[in-house]
Amino acid sequence: MGIYILKRIVSLLPVLFVVSVVIFGIVHLTPGDPASYMLGEEASPEQVNELREELGLNDPIPVQYLNWLGGVVQGDFGDSYFMNQSVLDAIFSHIGPTLSLAIVAEIIALSISIPIGIVAAIKRGTATDQSVMVVSLMGMAIPSFLLALFLALIFGVQLGWLPVAGYQPLSNGLWNHLQYLILPAISLGAIQAALIARMTRASMLEVLNTDYIKMARSKGMKERTVIYSHALKNAFLPILTVIGATFGALVTGAVVTETIFNIPGIGQLIINSIERRDYTIIQGIVLFVTLIYVTINLIIDLLYGFIDPRVRLDSK
């Protein structure tokens, strides 16, 4: 098992390498640079060029890339051009809200979508099933920023139940922390919930039709045991895949939501950094988010092996 995990981690390195090349290229080849932003609009081209020279931005791009990569492999992502901070410090001071938001969104999404997916599958073809399908279709179709505005308007402005925008860290108390996250989490998690509900329904429907479910019933198993033990454990594999894919999307998709709800997370950091061409921060965030993404997928794969003995054997 240990060797397997190690192998998987090693196999992630090429992915990270490719991502680093691509993001470095994109950042450095788009027009505009930190030097001109630092000096403001009045600066003469000579002044800008001088600063570029000083920052090493006039070196050939491959050289700049290797310099940067050299730092990265040693855990040094460089410093921000604008903030008096290293890239890692900047990321760590913004990752908390983003992860909190993603986790709350995922918990809300899962606790709604899996039960209703199961119920829809059990009551397939009935009005209940059809409502689940329609609502989940709406959940997938509605843009999350619209949902965000809508929720803020109703529950924040009209009813005043929850704050309209802002953020409080967990250290200020759980409820203080959560109440700022609920609306953004719902608007962020809606698409996920819809996707997971549909996948749960489809996966359960398939499993409920199998011979081993018939066999479980023929053994006299209670319907509850049949569904929550015999069926769900099998149906869970494809659901898990969707959860993995959508959790990554939660982290990246937070950009818009964080902006609307004014949450000081990675989303805000990257928007500000793109605006002022804070190269090192942009590169750092993209690499970092990629790392989160691949780690989650690795965890999902390991869970797969944990749930399905056939996968466990194959991976030996």
Binding site: T210, Y212, K214, S218, G220, M221, K233, N234
Partner: peptide
Amino acid sequence: GDAISMIFQDPLSSLNPV
């Protein structure tokens, strides 16, 4: 499963894989 029980045709698909 107690007084009456049943054997199905395909043992691979009738035993729960997990």
